[in-house]
Amino acid sequence: MEEKRNKAAGIGGLISAAVLPFIIGLILALVIGWWAFPLVLFKEVPQPVAFKHSPHSEVMECADCHFLREDGSFSGIPTTAECASCHESAQGESRAEAEYIEKYVNGEQEAPWLVHQKQPDNAFFSHAAHSLESCQQMGCHADYEKAEDLCITCHPSTADLDKPVPYLENRLTGYSNSTMKMWECERCHANPNHLDMTNANNACYTCHK
């Protein structure tokens, strides 16, 4: 009996001496890696104007501001002139709107909006190539019913948000933390199901420049 008890105490001692520090270390590392390090790496940069999507999406379609131009390029952000077609004078009583009209509409300059999904300099992303029709043509993605279903696979939906999504800038690279990573492109481009069916091949020059 005496020996057994000693043995049990020995195992308990082993757990507290070796396993516990390991678990504490693991938790500490996870906390640093997932919480502290991103706090140090990314800094929040405010948008030039505290833009709210929700009041706009109540009265407008997404495509009124975000549309393909005739030359194939994409108008991601409306120009000040396009905004001024409604906001020539204040539509509401918000301070952000008054500031926007004062500074950008009356000042006749473009607001330096920060784009969350802005591509790095060496990538050429074509919105025209990623159209709803091209996804539906083989009948594979019938679940995409309208253009927005496709848009939100890369751009998280902001239509119902009352405040701007915080823009987090990487202090080292200067990129947004939600820049599209190459593995996200490869989910489709390197997918064997897509080869020979669409133009989504994995050649370097398909995306890179």
């Binding site: 393909l68 131009r69 005739e70 030359d71 194939g72 390029s73 050429f124 074509s126 025209a128 190539a129 159209s131 020059y205 420049k209």
Partner: peptide, 13 residues
Amino acid sequence: HHRFMQAKDRARV
């Protein structure tokens, strides 16, 4: 090559 990309986008639209 960027002109090829632009030409393809024009054609797509």
